[in-house]
Amino acid sequence: MSKTGDLTKKDVLHIAKLANLQIQDANIEMYRTQLEETINYVENLDELDTSNVEPTSHSTRLSNIYFEDGTKNSRQFTQKEALQNAKSTKKSMFVVKRIME
C-alpha cells in the first residue's frame, strides 16, 4: 500500500478484512475511489511543518486518572443483565463460534 493514494482493489479487500467487514464485489470500486479521495485530501497536512511539535491526545492534557483503592464499582452488571441482549446464550454464557479445532 502506498500513501500517495494509488489504492488497489487488493488493498481495499485487505483493509476490509482487517476491519472484519464483508464488502460486496460490486462495491469494491466505490470504496476504493472514496478512500482514495479522502486520503488525497488529508495529505494537505504535509503543507505544515511539524518537526518540532508534540502530538496531543487528550485536548486538556488530563493524564493518570485512577480510582481510589477499594472503590465500589456500582457499574458491575449481574450475569442476567450482562446477557440480556445476547441472541445466543448457553448455561449463562455467550455462545461464540469455535476458533480452534
Binding site: I15, L18, L45, T50, P55, T56
Partner: peptide
C-alpha cells in the same frame, strides 16, 4: 475502513501521529 487504513502498519506516523501534531 479509512480508520483501519491510517492506523495500519507503516501508516500510523504518516497519518495519525501527524494529525495529533497538527491538533497541537
Amino acid at each position: 475502513m479509512l480508520g483501519t487504513y491510517t492506523l495500519s502498519h507503516g501508516y500510523y506516523d504518516a497519518f495519525y501521529k501527524k494529525a495529533q501534531k497538527i491538533k497541537t
